[in-house]
């Protein structure tokens, strides 16, 4: 029974989140004490559900792009012909992390205009780093005995990559993707400062009209999404790690 409690908690969180998005009116009495002068307690300048879906879409597009580019790059620099780029790519990843998201976002505006595009670029650049780093770690720390065996059994470079290296590195790569998604979910809210349609709109509307209820609901929806997605990824990693015969990682 005790094993089930964490699952039940997550299920409850999911149910509450969906209920809040579909029928926000139910929660009006809960948030009402936070507002003054009869201000609305539930975001009323658009549908929370639509904003949540747009938020998730932005994150999904940016993360897909980041996965494709980061994994390809990591594979390239771990092959013999790209080995020359390995040290540099490590330092670039390090340097890239020092660029604040707000700066990236603001600097992308003159080139791409206001709206979703600069947000996508900022999320893409930010999402690259954890995925690239983890893919590198995954591909460079494979047990040498396994690599020898694969080479010994006459596998081509290509077969080794797709049948041995990537499947074994998959749990670590997924951990990088999970980190990247959670960071992107939170960072996407900043996109609303340049007019992107994300849940940040709710928070910023709250900041501008001094409405704590708006700020709170925007923040909590993003937080709940992050927790649920984080757990979902952890579960997949667990299954994959077991299938690959690796000890489960935290």
């Amino acid at each position: 029974m005790r094993v089930l409690i964490p699952y039940l908690l997550r299920l409850a969180l999911l149910v509450i989140l969906i209920a809040f998005l579909v029928v926000p009116g139910w929660f009006d009495p809960l948030l009402k004490p936070l507002v003054r002068d009869n201000a609305p307690a539930i975001y009323n300048q658009g549908s929370l559900l639509t904003l949540t879906l747009l938020h998730l879409r932005t994150v999904a597009i940016a993360t897909t792009g980041a996965i494709l580019v980061a994994v390809t790059l990591a594979i390239l620099v771990t092959r013999p012909f790209g080995a020359e780029f390995l040290p540099l790519s490590r330092s670039l990843v390090n340097i890239g992390q020092t660029f604040p998201p707000v700066a990236v976002l603001a600097l992308a505006v003159p080139i791409l205009g206001f709206g979703e595009k600069p947000t996508l670029v900022a999320l893409f650049l930010y999402g690259l780093l954890p995925i690239f780093e983890n893919t590198l770690t995954g591909l460079t720390t494979l047990p040498s005995s396994v690599m020898e065996a694969a080479r010994g059994s006459g596998m081509t470079d290509r077969q080794r990559l797709f049948k041995v290296e990537l499947p074994l590195a998959m749990p670590v790569i997924l951990a990088g993707i999970r980190l990247s998604v959670v960071i992107s979910l939170a960072t996407a809210t900043i996109g609303s400062t340049v007019a992107a349609k994300t849940l940040g709109e709710v928070i910023i509307a709250g900041l501008q009209s001094n409405n704590i209820a708006f700020v709170l609901q925007g923040g909590l929806i993003v937080g709940a999404l992050a927790v649920l997605i984080y757990d979902g990824f952890s579960a997949i990693e667990h299954v994959l790690a077991r299938r690959a015969g690796l000890p489960a990682r935290a």
Binding site: L185, T187, I203, L207, L216, G219, L220, G223
Partner: peptide, 17 residues
């Protein structure tokens, strides 16, 4: 860890109260 999932602009705002 949970605190980290709250977006920065929301956390800044929530603390106002």
């Amino acid at each position: 860890n949970l605190i980290q999932t709250i977006p920065s602009i929301a956390l800044f705002g929530i603390l106002i109260a």
